[in-house]
Amino acid sequence: MAFSIDAAAWGSPWRRIAVADKALLVTGTLVLDLLVPAWPGTLLVAAGLTIAAIASARVDWRLWLAALALPLTFVLTGVLSIALQVGPPAPGSTPWWSWGPLAVTAESVARAGTVLGRSLAGTCAVVLLAVSTPMVDLVDAGRRLGVPAPAMDIAALMYRLLFVLWESAVTIRSAQAARLGYVGLRRSVRSFGSLAAGVLVSAWDRSRRLEQGLSGRGYTDDLRTLRHVRPHSPVFLAATGAWLLALAAIGTYGSGVLG
């Protein structure tokens, strides 16, 4: 039960909303997130999406925070790297700290701050889509957009097999750990290699068995199934429109005031 974001998506009240509607909200927000001045724009985005997630989409606040924390390692490493300058500071910059060729300037910190804000707000948008829309709905949307059926079939089967293989991987790993397979680096590398092999063998085996099972159900080429039809929600679309307009307006106004 490791995939808590996925579990939340299946039970989300926002599942009833058409994928296109949610996609408009998320992609619109993502684009504006990259365009509006980061401060206070991104904070506003993060705050607005957090309220929407917890109040409307009924996301457990612990899950919301935990999901936002997931990309933390990359974000912190990346942001700190941006704050740190290498080589002579550009003319006109305000050095705060320097050591040999390394320097931290007001400008580099501001840039890092901008990226931090955008990353936080952007992560909010992606996580909001993720916790409210199961992968099967996105695959159906992909089919409607005209992605070739075989490609979407493979994506859908991948999603299904993922959980079957994850169970295998977790079981193999705990069986290895129980027999002390992860004590010391040398043994760990060997165990991990045979874990990878075990998962691959199990993937082959599973695919062969599923292929046989499917052919028994009359599978010949495409995996045709019913699709969920979810009507557009005028209320949701209106709210999305208002939100995006407000963001754009604040962005424009903000860039006038803050330069």
Binding site: E167, S168, T171, I172, S174, A175, Q176, S194, L195, A197, G198, S202, D205
Partner: peptide, 10 residues
Amino acid sequence: LQDPDDQLFS
């Protein structure tokens, strides 16, 4: 565990 397939990895 119950399923032997995932416990035999050699």
